[in-house]
């Protein structure tokens, strides 16, 4: 899958494929020098049928980085979104906390046009060994979150597996039992884990595909794999096991709270929520109340 062409001595071209979004990354550094190969290597290459294509220019800066324009969205300590004329500018403060960088020091600016298909990433490197490009972390996730909204999809806080050709997504907040579910399913024949924390889903008509993404708590589980989505399961810990089909309107609110929505841009948010609407109308969503025990696998399979 790995493909890399050298355009010029100072500009390497690397193709990335995440959820069928093609990213053409141009950088004076190699992927090894950017330290993105550890997390993104399974995602190097080009999709057979791209659902979107992004041009991304990476550049290095030794200057102090600051978000440009008016601050429009501040979800917490990690990143903030700014609007500068026709350009979006995400200011990302930390990712993997390299030696020498304070948590609050801005490490990366990600500038995007309205279509989120032409981007520049300006990043500050620290030291020689501990630095990793945020492209493999929060910056890359922001790019895909936007690209999914624009290509009929959404990113959910969820784990995903391929159970013998059937995509199953377990959604829940931190601590809801996503990783526990994965552990049970990994012991089953024909199960391919896709991700333990971030699932990308794209809807097309009454059909949806779920994809593994590079971002999660267990990087070795993140795989560049896709499966037709058969069911979405909303996890809830309980003293007794039970599974019940939710109506689209009941599923809507619960899924909206578990989706990574682009709150910074009305038009993009509208697209993402429309995609969510099509998702709950085309794919069954179940509420799975369960104890942490392997028999849940059979319970889930009984409704597929």
């Amino acid at each position: 899958m790995k493909e890399k062409n050298v355009m010029s001595p100072n500009n390497n071209l690397t193709h990335l494929s995440i959820a069928d979004i093609q990213i053409d990354l141009r950088s004076p550094l190699t992927v090894r020098e950017m330290h993105i190969d550890e997390l993104l290597e399974p995602f190097f290459g080009q999709p057979e049928r791209p659902a979107g294509r992004i041009q991304l220019q990476w550049e290095e800066s030794a200057d102090i980085l600051r978000g440009e324009g008016e601050m429009v969205y501040d979800p917490g300590i990690i990143w903030r979104m700014f609007r500068d004329g026709e350009t979006w500018c995400a200011e990302i403060s930390y990712g993997d906390q390299p030696a020498g960088a304070g948590n609050e020091e801005v490490r990366c600016l990600l500038r995007a046009n309205n279509a989120w298909d032409t981007l520049t990433m300006t990043e500050k490197r620290y030291g020689t060994g501990g630095w990793h490009s945020l492209l493999a972390l929060g910056a890359g996730e922001l790019i895909i979150r936007s690209a999914m909204a624009l290509s009929g999809g959404i990113v959910l806080h969820a784990a995903g597996i391929d159970d013998n050709g059937r995509g199953i997504v377990f959604s829940g907040h931190s601590g809801a039992g996503k990783s526990t579910q994965l552990d049970f399913w990994l012991d089953e024949d024909g199960v391919i884990p896709m991700t333990d924390d971030r699932v990308a889903i794209r809807v097309s008509g009454d059909y949806a595909v779920c994809y593994g993404t590079p971002w999660g708590g267990m990087p070795d589980i993140a795989s560049n794999h896709a499966a037709p989505l058969k069911a979405l399961l909303l996890l809830e810990q309980a003293s007794e096991n039970g599974i019940s089909l939710l109506s689209p309107n009941n599923a809507a609110t619960m899924l909206a709270c578990r989706a990574f929505l682009p709150y910074w841009d009305r038009a993009l948010l509208q697209r993402a929520i429309s995609n969510l609407d099509r998702l709950v109308k085309s794919i069954p969503v179940y509420l799975l109340r369960c104890r942490p025990e392997p028999s849940v696998v059979e319970l889930v399979r009984s409704v597929l």
Binding site: Y73, P75, S247, A256, L261, I273, D277, V280
Partner: peptide
């Protein structure tokens, strides 16, 4: 805020800086 219908449910979703001042959707 953005009012949008999802699965028949009317959701009022906060936008931008309003997200931090609003208790969810």
């Amino acid at each position: 805020f953005l009012l949008q219908t999802v699965g028949g449910e009317h959701l009022l979703v906060p936008l931008g800086s309003q997200v931090m001042d609003t208790n969810g959707i």
